[in-house]
Amino acid sequence: MAVLEVNNLSKRFGTSEVLKEVSFTLSQGEILAVIGSSGSGKTTLLRCLNFLESIESGSIKVHDRVLFDSNDQVKYDENDIRQRRLHFGLIFQSFNLFPQYTALENVTLAPILALKKNSDSSTYRSKLSEDIRAEGIALLERMGLETKQDSYPHQLSGGQQQRVAIARALALKPDILCFDEPTSALDPELTGEVLKVIRSLADGNTTMIIVTHEMQFAKEIADNIMFLDEGMVVEYGNADEILSNSKNERIMKFLDRYESTGDY
């Protein structure tokens, strides 16, 4: 059964079409790498899935439940959108940690706030928030940050900050984890530690969409690859086939550019 089903998703900014009828499906544990030059709509696709952008037309289903369908003329209120967002986790290019909270507080803030909103009994609540804390510590350990849980974002390197951001997204147990160029803001020597963490998530059966420029990494980790060009899916399919044997002119040109600049 498909975890995520996206059908004919289109998005316009003013008169320019940023996404044109993008469709794909993800099964449990599948990893999709989205590649393409800047301005091809990769980031917009992730933002649409996370309801940070409005969608012109198309539909999004998670576990067969319709999250969005432009054919239903329903207006979702803020609360609806909030609930729908929780199916997705988003890791930003620039981390976007909350500067006034420690690494652990960054991870536990949202779950604890959700808890306060949803439960009445305060003794039960304090027990649960203890659990959330314990889970947050475990997540940071998984990220290799057990010694950094009380550090503030400005005391952490970019790679460490991004790993906290990954833990923060995981704390809400999303069905699909989205990465928006997770290593683009990092020095080359910090890229490895973040990719290692993503790799470990891949082994743990996490369903992921990764927008990336790390072609070698995409090849190694992704099950499927989607190549976007001017908002259109030019090629979508098995990662090895596309990266090794694609006959499509645009994708060959794109890959050539990466190889010639050595920008792996």
Binding site: N50, L52, R85, G89, N96, F98, A110, L113, A114, L172
Partner: peptide, 9 residues
């Protein structure tokens, strides 16, 4: 946006 994707009001 970071708060929004974490489901905060």
């Amino acid at each position: 946006e970071a708060g929004q994707v974490l489901g905060m009001t």
